[in-house]
């Protein structure tokens, strides 16, 4: 991985973070806005995992390692939130 890639990722992380705050302060509160903030955060996480933790360059078995816990956490959260009420 080149040092330039590292810097580009960093610039994206910083920009996305500032964007999150801007989005919040311009249009606070709506579900759509919360969702887009969530997507921005997720995109940052993916970039960090892929480039800073160089998962992109790891062998397949390691790349797959991270999927089961992510999936389980998603199932846990969905069950938590949607099992109560209708």
């Amino acid at each position: 991985m080149k040092i330039a890639t590292t810097l580009i990722v960093w610039v994206y992380l910083v920009t996305a973070t500032i964007l999150e705050v801007v989005i919040y302060s311009e249009f606070p509160g709506s579900t759509l806005i919360n969702l887009s903030i969530g997507i921005l955060a997720a995109s940052k996480a993916v970039l960090i995992v892929m480039y800073y933790m160089h998962l992109k360059y790891e062998p397949r078995p390691i790349q797959y390692l991270i999927l089961p816990p992510t999936f389980l956490v998603a199932v846990l959260i969905l069950t938590l939130v949607f099992s109560v009420g209708h």
């Binding site: 390692l65 089961p68 816990p69 992510t70 956490v73 846990l76 959260i77 938590l80």
Partner: peptide, 16 residues
């Protein structure tokens, strides 16, 4: 992977 589950369940509790 274990840490993902630790924090996933903590953030999940927050969302709940």
């Amino acid at each position: 992977t274990t840490e993902v589950v630790v924090f996933g369940s903590i953030l999940g509790s927050y969302l709940f």
